[in-house]
Nucleic acid binder design. Structure first.
Lengths: 336, 336
DNA sequence: TTGAAAGCGCTAACAC
DNA sequence: GTGTTAGCGCTTTCAA
């Protein structure tokens, strides 16, 4: 009975017809409600409800040139540091009506470039990336598309893109200095892959000190609990007697903790342990892990702000430096 | 010198003009290359390269009615079980040219509905959700939009949407039966919030047994390492002497492990510990955690297949049951 | 194998 | 305050 039983979704025209107004009016009800008389507005809104009308994002995008989508490229979702960042980012972008699309890169510049293209394809208005090391193809893509891009987890004033992050070198130095002040001389450093990971590289550079009376040995591994275990096993197999392990991530520190337990090495009595990140679990391991707090939630918020600013004003925001902070807990002790 | 310095991105018309063909031909080069003569195709492709032409996803979507975007609604990104699922899902969707947009719900049906609307707004062609408990508004949205929706982490043949997942009741029963067979009689069960989490509810129901000679006590907490710690603390404060703790997630089991360590309670000598999930870290804690393996990677693949099938054929796929499996490690022992 | 032209659903001038 | 209308960038008939 009802016209023809076409199952298609209602569109602007359908609503306009049913409400006895023009498409422009319906569009106004949607986009600038106060430009429409109360009476008309209510009627149109009712029809919208009846017809279950949902505006087409594609059509809107094609006209306004805006998709309200921003893309984030993170190394992995498997590490809480990134998922926490994304949660904060998403929350604050949502306040401005922006959706977040996430893609993972495995810290591989080629994958990053591919995924970035995918994000451009679906019409992302801006991109969020980790760190400042990207493939030439990636840089070219950004240049061609003139897309706003913000580099996070890294602070670098002089980078050609705005950065929102912390001083990675400073963070690791903070951890090292704490151990040195506590009298540690032989320290094992457990870090993630150096290749194409500038955050790790920066943290390593923060440990350099030409005039030092201490010894550092580096152990590279995957950034995972298993990786922390494996690296610690290698540490224990060395002839050197280390009194402390400095891990570039709390995830690694947790692995180290387990491996030490497996070898009946007491923390902190026989081995001190410091992490970086301050993930939620770090305060409830046994013993609780001394670490460097990285303000990821604030980073998410600051990044969202930077994106919104850029999109609104068309001018690139300034880089933002967030402070890292030492949190002393029970996995470290003074050497006497 | 070069025409006018308009900074806009090239479009189909620009390419067509530059290549000396019609827009239709360029469109064909993009969508059905073999319908174009090799010569024309090569010329057009070259121009596409020169002009750095990237087709507009919005315009494509508006015409084809397809956005090639699928949306996933997960409770949280903070639990590896979901991030691993999403990683697998994304990987397999990508094979079919589908992008994944992720939204988190905090297991709150209202938030889920809101985010679902957001996904519909951006033109998601299909939705993936966790479990089968959703708000009436959500169901209404699905009905109205006629969107393909797949429920995961849950298997339920008779649900009105296809499900891809495991038998949650069976998984917890597997864990319980293992403990019972080992002679445990007083068992503490640590689980996440029951409210609006049907996976937890199902796992609880799997523990019911009218004729039993054992005692079960439930401890509800947040699904996090801290939550596991807190629940374990409550367990230790009880008068009952438990010989085993059954955690509905490995994340909880890890918290339990730390809390037990904090109280000098040896695992498994004084307390057995079983988890569910089989996350990567579970095999490298100390002691390694006995758990129920949940095939999340296969779930991601099966879900992707189901979505692709539905989108291709327009007919809803059948539900898929994935087997959970007991993995015995060192956190449990036989009571003698 | 190719081109012309008609939309897709919406926004944004511009006119009334 | 409201309607008319010209596109946005593309796909897709239909002819040639």
């Amino acid at each position: 009975m009802e016209s023809r039983p076409k199952k298609k979704r209602a569109n602007l025209r359908d609503v306009a017809k049913a409400a006895g107004v023009s498409v422009a009016t319906v569009s106004r009800v949607l986009n600038s409600p106060k430009a429409v008389s109360e009476e008309t507005r209510l009627r149109v809104q009712e029809v919208i409800g009846m017809l279950h009308f949902v505006p087409s994002a594609a059509a809107r995008a094609i006209n306004s040139g805006r998709t309200r989508v921003v893309g984030a490229l993170v190394p992995t979702l498997d590490n809480a540091i990134f998922s926490r960042f994304l949660a904060a980012l998403e929350k604050h972008l949502a306040k401005h009506g922006l959706s977040l699309v996430v893609a993972t890169t495995s810290d591989d510049p080629e994958i990053e470039t591919e995924k970035a293209k995918g994000l451009v394809d679906i019409g992302a208005e801006a991109l969020i990336v980790s760190g400042i090391a990207h493939s030439p193809d990636f840089d070219r893509l950004i240049e061609q598309t003139r897309l706003p891009v913000i580099a996070t987890s890294y602070f670098e004033k002089s980078y050609h893109l705005p950065t929102v992050g912390y001083d990675n070198a400073g963070a690791s130095r903070l951890a090292l200095n704490f151990l040195l002040a506590a009298g540690h001389k032989n320290i094992a450093v457990v870090h993630g892959p150096v290749k194409s990971n500038d955050r790790t590289q920066a943290r390593l550079s923060g440990l350099k000190n030409p005039v030092s009376s201490h010894t550092l040995q580096m152990f590279e591994t995957d950034i995972s609990v298993e990786g922390g275990c494996a690296a610690t096993l290698r540490i224990l197999e060395r002839d050197t007697v280390f009194t402390a392990i400095l891990c570039f991530s709390d995830v690694l520190a947790m692995g180290a903790l387990f491996e030490l337990q497996r070898h009946q090495i007491r923390v902190p009595d026989e081995m001190s342990l410091v992490g970086i990140d301050d993930l939620p679990f770090s305060s409830c391991t046994f013993p609780e892990i001394t670490t460097i707090h990285l303000p990821v939630a604030r980073m998410g918020e600051a990044t969202a702000q930077a994106v919104v600013h850029w999109l609104d004003t068309q001018v690139a925001p300034k880089s933002v430096l967030l402070e890292a902070e030492l949190i002393v807990r029970n996995s470290t002790r003074e050497l006497n």
